[in-house]
Design a protein around this nucleic acid. Sequence first.
DNA 1: AACTTGACAGCAG
DNA 2: GCTGCTGCCAAGT
Length: 103
Amino acid sequence: MPTPFQDAVYKALLKIPKGRVTTYGEIARYLHTKAVRAVGSAVGKNPNAPAVPCHRVVLSTGKIGNYSGEGGVDTKKALLTEEGVVVVNDTILNFKDVLYTFS
DNA sequence: AACTTGACAGCAG
DNA sequence: GCTGCTGCCAAGT
């Protein structure tokens, strides 16, 4: 049973369109909190996987960040590439172009 | 109830 | 652009 905070985070994740990514900071802003760490923890637990596209969340610096699924970061990069996001090593190319800000 | 941990962000050097 | 330190809040121990 997820906490209300986690539920809010997952709900936010579902709003991310395919081929786009968002940052923990943007999610925190969307939830009206500065607890980016808490957001990261909530996503990391991800009890709703794969119902929630948790692989579309990256660092504000354009780097991939971390991943707790199959194969770790490697799979995360692969998934993003599948969705149309170009990733080199651990960095997203044209990051600002694919970034989703919950407009 | 107190302390530690964590899929981070922002700034200084 | 990279390394390191600080600040943030929720969850788990």
